[in-house]
Design a binder for these strands. Structure first.
Lengths: 239, 239
DNA sequence: TGTACATCAGTGAACGCGCGTTCACTGATGTAC
DNA sequence: TGTACATCAGTGAACGCGCGTTCACTGATGTAC
């Protein structure tokens, strides 16, 4: 948790620098290992072996295997988050909401395809016996944060024809409203949720092997899906 | 693989019956264990312990841990498949395509919520180091088979306004076409794929803990999502 | 600048554990005559 | 129906393995005066 508090004011001692670097190396090696075995059998000893150090030395940096897992989650969420944030901010026409959605979707999938095991850690089955601590929440919200801003911008661009939702649904999504902002109406929130569900579902189905005999050109297929899933009202007019 | 060939013509000897029953017991116990630890650390010894037998005895029934995993996959897919098939066939008005979609979606989620670890096995992260054999393919297609029939019925009911897809997409989804039937046009196939992606994404996000601070009443939320995701053209008119 | 002490990184041996799988065996069940 | 043999289920000990974590230690780095 407060493993990195030592360099809060950039202490430039040799020790502190070495520590920061080795901490990074451990996380990197662990993520590499994730690609071979999956998070459930992530092994402290294998990481130590990979780095050529005694397994007990890792405990100078992470007090337990679970803390290492936490660091992996934060690292993954942050990496994905910054990729998506950057790509979104690179879209010059901020009113081209469809393009911003497409950018977000392509980005998430691109990262997922490039780092399938990190994606599985973030969006696949939870690791049994491991409870993600509070500190992972903030990094986890960065991607959906980009989507939230997009929804706000869509709402600000003018009222869109979105279906009204039942009262039970309205009450149920107060958490989403607090996160996204109250200026976005229920219908648009749900449209965003549906789009996000479809995006994660599409990527999971692809990466977890459920399209093996169904789809050949995954890029073209996904691109088409992404248009269908767009939360903008003009989705059917996309072509 | 051919573990069950012994009772192909129902040999009613005591031995064969005992074997069939114990085989079932092993699978059931393994599925129970899945609920505690996850598929990656499914343990032959734990299953044996649970059944009060020597760990080596399990090898009379399953030649290896991986074969046991395969049996779990088949068991899960078949259970989910028959639940969905039954529910669909219970819809009397076969032309109420929206209701049939809703039934399918409710069914899949209902089963997933009731058996979260089985769902994770089927639709979550793949088990590292394990390659699902051919024998799991057929059971795996039962659920999507119900969706395929629904799409055929929608297509048969008359041409629906569906967007035309690019040629690359058309070429990419021949596998889906072969599975669903050629009378379903590209647009409807993709609408079905988007709906299915959204369904799996919605369930995964819920079960894997990504809606924790976002949604309170999951039933109401999901019901609304399901309407938004419907592959029928009247989805926006659902309310 | 030099010394004395405190802090920290890294080592290697050891702990106790549970795992998958094999093997030679005993005793029960099935089958052919 | 009875006997002789073959098949099979289940046992318990043993194999070799990798794991997370602890601990007393050595030597290097940092700090206060």
């Amino acid at each position: 948790m407060d493993l990195d508090t030592d360099h809060r004011r950039a202490p430039r001692t040799a020790r502190a620098m070495a520590r920061a670097e080795l901490t990074r190396d451990i996380v990197d090696s662990a993520r590499k290992q994730l690609g071979v075995v999956g998070p459930a059998q992530l092994s402290v000893r294998a990481v130590a072996r990979d780095l050529g150090m005694a397994s007990s030395a890792v405990y100078r940096y992470f007090p337990s295997r679970d803390h290492l897992l936490t660091a992996l989650l934060e690292s993954g969420y942050n990496e994905l988050g910054s990729v998506v944030e950057e790509a979104d901010s690179a879209v010059v026409d901020r009113n081209d909401h469809l393009l911003r959605w497409l950018t977000l979707g392509r980005c998430v999938r691109g990262w997922a395809v490039a780092h399938p095991y990190d994606y599985a850690l973030l969006f696949g089955s939870p690791v049994p016996g491991y409870d993600a601590p509070q500190s992972t929440i903030q990094p986890a919200t960065r991607v959906t944060g980009v989507l939230a801003v997009l929804l706000r911008d869509i709402a600000a661009a003018g009222p869109v024809q979105q279906p009204v939702v039942p009262a039970a649904v309205h009450r149920s999504i107060t958490g989403m409203h607090e996160f996204i902002g109250t200026e976005v109406d229920d219908g648009l929130v749900m449209a965003g949720a549906a789009a996000w569900s479809g995006l994660i579902g599409a990527i999971s189905l692809e990466l977890f092997g459920h399209l093996v005999n169904a789809v050949s050109d995954h890029d073209a297929y996904f691109e088409e899906l992404l248009h269908l899933l767009a939360p903008t009202s003009d989705r059917l007019a996309a072509h």
